[in-house]
Amino acid sequence: MSDNTRKFLTSLAEDPETLERYRKDPEAVMNAFGVPDDHQKLVREGDKETLAREAGIDDNKMQLIIL
């Protein structure tokens, strides 16, 4: 589990300014949050499932249909 990775992902979801900075320079933003190298690799590869598990985010495989 990595608090830094979780804070990084939460910040991207909550703050469009951080997301814009990330789009321009992903490495700089991940380094600023202290995201570990192995998690940076998962981000670059777009491995969402492993990333969510590694970041300590459970219940990520959600059902969306509620009707």
Binding site: R6, L9, T10, A13, A52, G56, I57, D58, D59, N60, M62, Q63, I66
Partner: peptide, 25 residues
């Protein structure tokens, strides 16, 4: 709640008595 994993984390920051309903599926 019925939410994604990141939102669940956020809800747990706001309240420590959060129960996901995803296991009803």
């Amino acid at each position: 709640c019925v939410v994604d994993g990141l939102t669940l984390e956020r809800l747990r920051e706001l309240n420590d008595r959060v129960e996901s309903l995803q296991d009803s599926y």
